[in-house]
Design a binder for these strands. Structure first.
Length: 126
DNA sequence: CCATTGACCGGCT
DNA sequence: TAGCCGGCCAATG
C-alpha cells in the first residue's frame, strides 16, 4: 500500500477517535476535518479497513441525513444501533437526529491538540 | 487504460 | 418526507 494512502487512513481514523462519546458525525464531516474535502467515500472505505485491535468508534459515523449506513436488517446495523443507544444517542426509524447529536468541534478542540505547542502570538512552535 | 464499485452528498421534484 | 440524479474519488479488475 502506498505511503500516502496509509497516512490518509491514519488521519481518518484519528479524526474519528476525536468524536466524543454520545455524539456523532457524518462521513463528509469527518472527511472535511481530516483535510480531505469531498472525501466522504474515502471515510467509508477507511472504516472498512480498520485493523483488528484498533480502537475506532466507527458507530459514531453516520450519513449526513442521520441514517445509519447499513441495511436495517443486517447484524451490523443492529450492533451500531445498540452501541449508540448505549451511550444515550437515540436511534429511531434507522436514523439519528443530527440536529441534536452532531459533534461540533470548537476552535479550541481543533487547535489545541495535546501534541501541539504555541507561543503568545499564536505561532505554532512544534 | 477504461469500467465498475462503494459504510457518500446535496440539490431538486 | 422520499426518491431520483449527477457528482465525487480512490480502489479494483
Amino acid at each position: 500500500m502506498p505511503a500516502d494512502t496509509a497516512r490518509r487512513l491514519e488521519q481518518i481514523w484519528n479524526t474519528i477517535r476525536d468524536i466524543p462519546e454520545g455524539r456523532v458525525a457524518s462521513y463528509g464531516q469527518i472527511a472535511e476535518i481530516a483535510g480531505i474535502p469531498r472525501g466522504a467515500r474515502q471515510v467509508g472505505r477507511a472504516l472498512g479497513q480498520v485493523p483488528d485491535g484498533y480502537e475506532v468508534p466507527w458507530h459514531r459515523v453516520l450519513r449526513s441525513s442521520g441514517q445509519l449506513a447499513f441495511d436495517r436488517n443486517s447484524a451490523t446495523f443492529k450492533k451500531q444501533a445498540r452501541l449508540l443507544t448505549r451511550e444515550n444517542v437515540r436511534v429511531r426509524n434507522g436514523k439519528v437526529d443530527m440536529k441534536k447529536y452532531r459533534w461540533t468541534p470548537d476552535l479550541d478542540e481543533l487547535l489545541w491538540k495535546p501534541t501541539d505547542a504555541w507561543d503568545d502570538e499564536g505561532e505554532r512552535l512544534s
